[in-house]
Amino acid sequence: MKAIICAGTPTSGKTTVLKHVISKLKKKGHRSAFLKIDVQYADEDTLFKEEFGIPTRKVYSGELCPDHCNVMVLGDAIEWAEKEGADFLIVETAGLCLRCSPYIEGSLGIVVLEATSGMNLPRKVGPMLSLADIAVVTKIDLISQAEREVFRARVLEAAPEISIAETDALHGIGIDPIVEQFCKSESVNYPLYLRGNPPVGTCTICVGKKEIGWKQHFGVVRPLENQNFYRGE
């Protein structure tokens, strides 16, 4: 079985891309299982179950960061999908904080970026893009070709080795190359490791201290004027 992680900012079109991919995988005779990780609302599990009749699960990360949640639940999810007899476990995750990369070493990692979100987006999303294998650029029908070129160049600047799939996912255009890469990708290979390092440690905000200003906190703290993190009292 292959485990494929798909990340991307909210409304970038992850679900629409995956919908077309799952439909095409099904036509090729492959069985997919789907896991959605989100913070507080998601209905993709019901949608995909109804539309494709595939096994689906959903996890709300709630108080936990969705990427941390991903690391926690992924081991169980892979076992679940294998029991379901799936050829592909497709995990859709919110990847909200833009510091983590939710991808697994050796398995395919996909980031979905919307072309309409501005030329600087590829410079802003960090490891979610730089550690991915494929950047799926959505909504290309809404911007000029010139902007598409600049956007593409910026993606390659952040992730020189990445393969780029430009899509108009709403109309199902540009999906085939993604499906091809799904099929070519490596199977799950234990032990499973997260690709890249999660951001440093815990601070007192993480555990629920609400006072504003670094003087109120300890652990990893930082004032406005100092660009370096340091350990406070």
Binding site: T116, G118, M119, I143, E147
Partner: peptide
Amino acid sequence: HTNFLSDM
């Protein structure tokens, strides 16, 4: 309908 969306 082709438009520029970037505010560069």
